[in-house]
Amino acid sequence: MKPEKIREDFPIFDERPELAYLDNAATSQKPESVIDAVENFYRENNSNIGRGLYELANDATQAYKDARSKVAGFINADSDEVIFVRNTTEAENLLASSLDFEGGIVLSKMAHHSEQLPWRRKADEEDKNIEYLGTENGKISIKSAKDKIDEDTGLVAISHISNVFGAENPVEEIIEIAHDNDALVVLDAAQSAPHRPLDVKDIDADFVAFSGHKMLGPSGTGVLYGKKELLQDMRPYQVGGGMINSVEHDEVKYADAPERFEAGTPNVAGAVGLAAAVEYLEDIGMENVSAHSKKLAEKMIGGLEEIEGIDVISPEGANLVSFTCEYAHPHDVAEVLNQHGVAVRAGHHCAQPQMVELDVNGATRASPYIYNTEEDVEKFLESVREASEIFNAT
């Protein structure tokens, strides 16, 4: 990993050379290759897909198929198990709308609201019971999973890596517990897919969702993986053009997955851009990506623990750092950092139940990625020291 060299591939740092961008858990910056892929599609191959018989339409259709194949390979899935969506949020809503199952729902208190709310609404609409898994040292508690997941559980929805703590949850054990009780598992990989190798066959979750914009891809792109036998039994999320085999006055025959879940004209250019992002990350190597993020996060944690009034809530081994300041609200800390060219996130991070469990009114979060350097970390730590001194003095 040579982040200084990688940084040269990202035009935003030409425009803002002093920026220490540490809000990558919210969204990542885009390399030139991704921007070029989207632009070149519109310049050279733009057409609707799937129906045109002319050369341009065929080229656009092939580009879309190639993008699906590239993304499928990235997670070790088959192409017909990969559905393109707008983001993780849409993937969770698609599943909650289309998936039928008996039994209750188990969520986690650390879950992002987009992971929680679609299932909470389904529970309300279908009178399903909901249980919540507790948190222990920044990870989902295995003891809680053993207590809450039982023969009455129909579905378990969990985060692979929390966007609050940045620690990898013991998902393999939780998935095994769920499957032993014949429950389905939905894995939110929004924070893991950008940072570590993700093999859906090995991890054995029934569904996996992640967003393209957090892993160098364009906004409005995301992926829902599902085991093909489960996808085939699900009703369509939306209906319209492109997702049918035939329409008659008295009968509609829907296409097989994944097309049956992609009604209307898809974001073809976005899919092409996401494929370019996958290629960029594969060239670096996901093991290298993971090691780099954890290395910088470890340096941040070590530095923060030396600053008076700072309480780090991310555990050892996390790939991001969330912390509170005894003397100031997270928003105030983030604003001081902003004045020094350091971009971080502050608030409840769309995980209010987790903040209630922690008994805090929010946290400041710094999340590094491939283009962040040790100089960015030093700039971040220096700014936090200044913020602590400012608010302690007042």
Rank of each mutant, 00 (worst) to 15 (best):
L19G: 15
L19W: 13
L19F: 13
L19P: 13
A20V: 12
A20M: 14
Y21G: 02
D23E: 11
N24D: 05
N24Y: 09
A25F: 12
T27A: 09
S28M: 11
S28G: 02
S28R: 13
K30M: 12
P31D: 07
P31E: 06
P31T: 11
P31R: 13
E32G: 00
E32Q: 13
E32R: 14
E32C: 00
S33G: 15
S33Y: 12
S33D: 09
V34L: 04
V34E: 07
I35V: 01
D36V: 07
D36A: 09
E39R: 14
E39P: 01
N40T: 13
N40W: 04
F41E: 06
F41N: 06
Y42A: 01
Y42K: 05
R43F: 10
R43I: 04
R43C: 10
R43D: 11
E44A: 05
N45H: 03
N46V: 09
S47D: 01
S47C: 03
S47R: 06
S47P: 01
N48P: 15
N48Y: 02
N48G: 07
I49S: 11
I49C: 15
G50S: 09
G50E: 04
G50A: 07
R51I: 11
R51K: 14
R51C: 02
G52Y: 01
G52N: 03
L53G: 10
L53C: 03
Y54M: 02
E55F: 02
L56Q: 00
L56V: 00
L56I: 01
A57T: 02
N58L: 02
N58S: 05
D59Q: 11
D59N: 08
D59T: 11
D59V: 10
A60S: 05
A60Q: 06
A60T: 03
A60G: 04
A60H: 02
T61E: 04
T61A: 05
Q62M: 04
A63W: 06
Y64A: 14
D66E: 11
D66W: 15
A67M: 10
A67D: 00
R68L: 15
R68A: 03
S69L: 09
S69N: 15
S69R: 15
V71H: 03
A72R: 04
G73Q: 13
F74E: 05
F74K: 08
N76D: 05
N76L: 00
A77E: 10
A77T: 07
S79A: 15
S79M: 10
S79F: 01
S79D: 15
D80A: 06
E81G: 08
V82C: 07
V82T: 08
V82S: 03
V82P: 07
I83Y: 12
I83T: 10
I83V: 05
F84N: 15
F84V: 11
F84E: 15
F84W: 12
F84Q: 13
V85D: 14
V85A: 10
V85F: 08
V85Y: 05
V85K: 10
R86N: 14
R86F: 09
N87T: 05
